[in-house]
């Protein structure tokens, strides 16, 4: 199970890094969002994987580590704020300069490859 989990997190990271390396703002925001999922999964797993060990007192015999959960919970909300901020920044940039390319326009003319 640990192997599977790690592979999944790795795949998520790889896909989001690929998206972040694109030249347009929208895929980058999608990539950032997915990267925050990957990071959350990673952080969450620092408490190790446990099935049916809810972090509630008096429910089960044992309990999983609640601390990473608390941290990741706020991280999810902050991640949302970050996603929102970056997407709206992208909209604003598109409104201001009429393009969604993230590179310097001079550079774009030189290279012409996105």
């Amino acid at each position: 199970m640990e192997t599977l989990y790690a592979i999944t997190v790795g795949t998520l990271t790889a896909c989001s890094v690929f998206l972040i390396l694109r030249g347009r703002s929208f895929p980058i925001v999608i990539g950032l969002t997915m990267l925050s999922y990957a990071v959350n999964l990673f952080l969450f797993s620092t408490g190790r994987l446990a099935i049916n060990e809810l972090p509630l007192i008096g429910v089960g015999e044992t309990s999983t580590d609640p601390l990473p959960q608390a941290l990741v919970l706020t991280a999810i909300v902050i991640g949302f704020a970050m996603t929102a901020y970056s997407i709206i920044l992208a909209v604003r940039v598109r409104g201001e300069i009429g393009s969604d390319e993230v590179n310097d326009t001079n550079y774009a003319e030189q290279e012409g490859q996105r």
Binding site: E2, T3, Y5, A6, I7, V9, G10, T11, L12, T13, A14, C15, V17, F18, L21, A38, F42, S45, T46, G47, R48, L49, D65, P66, L67
Partner: peptide, 24 residues
């Protein structure tokens, strides 16, 4: 991206298979 993903996955695996010593 593949290299980064591979490294993150490796790290995660190494972490998951090690015993936990938590302050929780």
């Amino acid at each position: 991206a593949g290299t980064i993903g591979g490294i993150v996955g490796t790290l995660n695996y190494a972490l998951l298979t090690r015993p936990l010593n938590s302050i929780s």
